[in-house]
Amino acid sequence: METDPTIGTEDAQLLAAYRRGDAEALGQLVEKYKRPLFAFLSRFAANPGEADEWFQETWVRAIEHMNVFRQKNLLSWLFRIAHNLIIDQARRKKPDCSLDAPVAGGAFLADLIPAAALSPADEAAGRDLGRHVAAAAALLPVEQREVFWLRMDAGLPFKEIARIQRTSVNTALARMQYALAKLRAELAPAYRELQESRP
């Protein structure tokens, strides 16, 4: 069987080997990309079990729709499928729910959630900026959260993130800026601590 010329040689060879019936080849591909893909999915999943389920689903969709794959980078293709999956799940779980949604009393949803986002134990451990970042990021709208984690975890450039989200680089950049603005507001006390602790 011929290898697919649109993707990296090694990945194409492994895919071709899998199509010939070599299950080990699929194992190698999964192993190669498991960290960034699982990390990304786990930022959106409710628990590790759900992240595991989404991880498998992403791979199954990727392999079954390999005929429409036109990129050179298999990981980008996986992220794109993961993006679709996350958007589907977000729509099912929280239709029309946004941090910017106004609620009674002229406040916004984002104003009400933070207290619930961190457990009392987390609040007590206020010095742990990392936990604050993760908790605050979990409250961002899904598109902004995607940009944030694709940048922070996966280290993807904005050009690639824009491709995954099927948008422009400027929009991806703007989403990151919105995300940072919200995180900055959420993390203001922790930020101050961080700044003060610096020599």
């Binding site: 999964v30 699982f38 595991d52 498998q56 970042v133 975890d153």
Partner: peptide, 15 residues
């Protein structure tokens, strides 16, 4: 300050 991501999927994910 970004916390490290989750370690990885279940060991038998590929299977």
């Amino acid at each position: 300050a970004v916390p490290p991501p989750a370690a990885g999927p279940a060991p038998d994910a590929a299977a």
